[in-house]
Structures are given as structure tokens and as C-alpha cells.
């Protein structure tokens, strides 16, 4: 497929080795997707969509892993590239909304032109299946209240979205523990199962891979459909705690973007291709296999949805400050 296409093209190009770009119709070369995290399951999500979208456009869309500073490095890298539609921002919440709120970036979500939203993934609090101390979430909170700062947990990086959502719940319940950071949240799974952590926050991909070795205490979302991903586990609100965030706010999601000054016809071409790619049944099935839910929001809903998330996340940032002040 990709390989065969490349070889035939390569042979054609041997004849005319150098051409000036712009002479032909967009796209006449590979488009890059600048992905803000390290390689792994989540990157596969972007690769699935990129591959399908590349088929629509008849070019390759390599997903370039550019981790660093919670996604800020990827955004800055992409911003350095020209606004010609050949660079797509894989716009995750952290660099798009959180980084500006935390003062780590000088852009806002309004500085980008959206293509389509891709997927969302929810978070959950998990413990070891045989950990009898914590039959449910209130038991965990009781333990934390009785032993302030003694419960050890990880959410990946300390100022990431999962920690923010958790911090909000902890603040509401007025309990705290000791946070131990990892670069990526998946890495904490080993130490949960090895007994170092009392609980960790997980995402659907990691949960699905480890589902027989962990137990979900609570799902960090108020949406009914998320419960199914975690095999019917209770939500925070089912215990009577207020999550304090609604809709997409307590979830990870990404929205593919291009630079604001990208020509309108190029944006249109990319949007059409992405919409067609996301609509494919096999693409949807693969995404769901990995526990990621296609969100199917169009570019016209971007301002409304992303704007609302930004407003709610501010309260999460305050919660994280509260948790960190207890460390």
C-alpha cells in the first residue's frame, strides 16, 4: 500500500527529479502530523486517522512524535512551519488549552483553524483488584482522611489533565496524598501492580490492556456512555461527590488543527479528507477497539466546545495548586 505507492512514485520522479512546489494542486507531497507525546497506544490513534486521511488525499501523513513540556514543544515546532497546510497540529487539551492557562504558552485556541475533532478518552481511578482496603471510592477517601499524605498515587506528569481532574475531586472531598510523577501515565501501571502506589489514574487504552489486573474505583466523567468503556464501573457522582466539571472538560481529547493563516481552499481540502476518514467504519471500529471514542465534532462547533472546556479547567488548575501545597 504505502510502500507500493512510494515506489511507483519514486520511479516516476527519477525522470523529473526536482520540481517546484506550488505548481500542482494541494497536496503534492507528504503532510506531517506533529504529535505531542511519546510513541505508544495513543499515538496509534493518530496513526489510524492519519493513514485513512492520507488515503483520501493520496499522500502519506507521517505522525511525528515530538514529546516535551506537556505538548508545548510539539506546538512550537509546528508553529515554526509555514502555514501551507502541510503541517497538522495534533491538538491535545494539554498544549491547546492547559498550557496557555498555566502561563506556559502565549497562544489561545482561537489562534488555530480547526479541521475536525478526533477522539476523546476518559480517566478513571484504579486500584489493585485484591486491595481489600479500598472496596469503593468512599473507603479510599476515608483512608486518606485518616492518614493524611500517606496514600501514594501517580497520574503521570504532575500538572497534566488527569491530575487536574483528580485534584478537583480530592479538593471537594478534602483529602490528599503523595503524588509521584512519571513522564507518561502508562509507566505508573507497573508500580501500581507492584504495590508501590495505592491508586493511579488511567486512560482507556492502558486500562484495556491491564483490565484483569486492576479494579476501577470510579470513572472521572459524568457522561453515561463513558461507563461502558470501564465495564460499568461507577462514576464519581454515583457516590455523591461532585466532579465539578462537565462534558469534555474532565476528559482527554484532541482536535486536529492547522495554522490560522492557512489558505481557505487548503483547509477545505483537509477538512473534507478528515471528515471522510473519520466516517469510515473500519476507522471507527479500530478507535473503539483501543477505547477511544470518536467525537465527531465539526469545525463550526470548535469555539463553543473548546471555549467551554477552558473555562472549566481553570477550577482544575486551582485544585492542583491546592493539592501541591499539601506536598
Amino acid at each position: 500500500m504505502t510502500l507500493f505507492r512510494s515506489i511507483t512514485k519514486g520511479l516516476a520522479v527519477l525522470a523529473v527529479s526536482v520540481t517546484a512546489s506550488g505548481a500542482t494542486e494541494f497536496p503534492d507531497r507528504n503532510i506531517e502530523n506533529i504529535y505531542p507525546w511519546g510513541p505508544g497506544t495513543t499515538m496509534a490513534i493518530s496513526q489510524i486517522i492519519a493513514d485513512a486521511m492520507g488515503n483520501e488525499l493520496d499522500v502519506s501523513i507521517p505522525v511525528v512524535s515530538t514529546p516535551g513540556a506537556s505538548g508545548v514543544k510539539a506546538f512550537k515546532t509546528a508553529l515554526e512551519k509555514p502555514a501551507d497546510g502541510y503541517t497538522i497540529f495534533d491538538g491535545y487539551v494539554a498544549p491547546l488549552v492547559l498550557a496557555p492557562l498555566l502561563g506556559n504558552a502565549d497562544w489561545s485556541y482561537k489562534d488555530f483553524t480547526p479541521l475536525y475533532s478526533a477522539t476523546s478518552n476518559s480517566f478513571a481511578i484504579i486500584v489493585r483488584p485484591d486491595d481489600n482496603r479500598f472496596p469503593d471510592l468512599p473507603a479510599l477517601f476515608d483512608y486518606m482522611r485518616a492518614n493524611p499524605g500517606k496514600a501514594r498515587y501517580s497520574t503521570g506528569a504532575v500538572n497534566n489533565l488527569p491530575h487536574m481532574v483528580l485534584a478537583k475531586v480530592l479538593q471537594t472531598a478534602d483529602v490528599y496524598g503523595t503524588v509521584i510523577p512519571f513522564d507518561e501515565s502508562e509507566q505508573a501501571m507497573k508500580d501500581l501492580r507492584g504495590g508501590v502506589f495505592d491508586f493511579i489514574i488511567t486512560n482507556p487504552g492502558t486500562y484495556k490492556a491491564n483490565k484483569d489486573n486492576v479494579r476501577v474505583l470510579a470513572v472521572l466523567s459524568e457522561l453515561e456512555e463513558v461507563v461502558a468503556i470501564y465495564d460499568g464501573a461507577p462514576r464519581v457522582q454515583d457516590y455523591g461527590y461532585d466532579l465539578g466539571m462537565s462534558g469534555l472538560s474532565p476528559m482527554g481529547w484532541n482536535w486536529w488543527l492547522v495554522r490560522k493563516d492557512t489558505p481557505a481552499d487548503v483547509v477545505e481540502t483537509l477538512r473534507t479528507a478528515m471528515a471522510a476518514a473519520l466516517a469510515r467504519d473500519d476507522v471507527q471500529e479500530k478507535l473503539l477497539n483501543l477505547g477511544y471514542v470518536p467525537t465527531n465534532y465539526g469545525p463550526d462547533q470548535y469555539d463553543e466546545i473548546v471555549g467551554a472546556v477552558g473555562a472549566e479547567l481553570q477550577s482544575g488548575i486551582d485544585a492542583i495548586e491546592w493539592v501541591m501545597s499539601k506536598q
Binding site: 511519546g38 510513541p39 505508544g40 497506544t41 499515538m43 496509534a44 489510524i48 502508562e186 501501571m189 507497573k190 501492580r193 487504552g205 484495556k208 490492556a209 491491564n210 483490565k211 484483569d212 489486573n213 479500530k286 477497539n289 483501543l290
Partner: peptide, 23 residues
Amino acid sequence: AIPGDASSAVLMGALLLLGFFPG
């Protein structure tokens, strides 16, 4: 189901995609 390094993390992603959950 805990990948040893970045390469095996991608391998695990592929296995999940194909519908098999390691462990």
C-alpha cells in the same frame, strides 16, 4: 501488558489494534 521500551509500546499498540489484549 506493560511495554518494556518505546518500541515494544508501539508493538503493544499494534496488538491492541488487532483486537488482542496482552496480559
